[in-house]
Amino acid sequence: MVDLSVKIGQLTLKNPVMTASGTFGYGEEFADFIDLSRLGGIIVKGTTLHPRQGNPYPRMVETPSGMLNAVGLQNKGVEHFANIIYPRIKDLDTRVIVNVSGASVEDYVGVCERLNGLDKVAAIEVNISCPNVKQGGMGFGTTCAGAESVVSAVRKAWDRTMIVKLTPNVTDITEIARAAEAAGADAVSLTNTFLGMAIDVERMRPYLSTVTGGLSGACIRPIAVRMVWQVANAVQVPVVGLGGIMNGRDAVEFMLAGATAVQIGTANFIDPQTSVKVVDYIEDYLTRHGMSSCSELIGAMKR
């Protein structure tokens, strides 16, 4: 019997597999397909202080081994989450983690203050990396000063575990990771989507209403693995790896590169059972390799 549990800040997950924000709704959308209690955690849709309608349609286009999206953080705001969604999901036998977004430092703090009253929110993931909103979002995550300003303010407003989600759309992601760590992050997660663009050549128009969007899916995996490896070697806090994980093998690849836990994102759209299959694979992998716990796998790449 192997021990699949991992620790992120104060938070213990029963296994290292979480679902990525914006790809898994509030978990309920997947309840017909999987037993949600088998997951290490669910990271719910990006939540903002006020409701957001998101970007106009069209918001999605398929690309080689991936997709571009321009959803733009559509959500009904933290009040709606607290009053309507939270009561429905708080008793799930998995960790509920809320992804927090904002256009200003005050927005982030405001969301955290509202979440403080919700006991079953095990952690937050601070999103300083959304490429699809004009103000804030990725703007904070592309400079060390921006990351520091959000993370340090949130740290004062939130005592439980704080994961900071990083954008890959920077020259050196390790600098931003170090800034987040120094400002009080308990962990960093990477990567969010890569800024991309696709054009319908017959209509001579961009496919997305916003012209550019966030690229996700298997096509980004090698870049994400490289960045996780770099960041894991640059910070002391745990790294949560994501970006194009399609199956258990891919998840193990991230863990070998140094990720303490992983998130399943776009793969949820292709096979809604991916996340639980990844849990099974990791358990089997540890057994096959004579490992008794995930700690033996994390960063175990040989050179």
Partner: peptide
């Protein structure tokens, strides 16, 4: 037949703007 990814209301890509509830 709006372009969609997940088909189950998770990705919010296929939105239609409605009179009563927005997207």
């Amino acid at each position: 037949e709006n372009t969609m990814a997940c088909g189950i209301g998770a990705c919010l890509c296929c939105v239609e703007d409605t009179v009563d509830s927005g997207n």
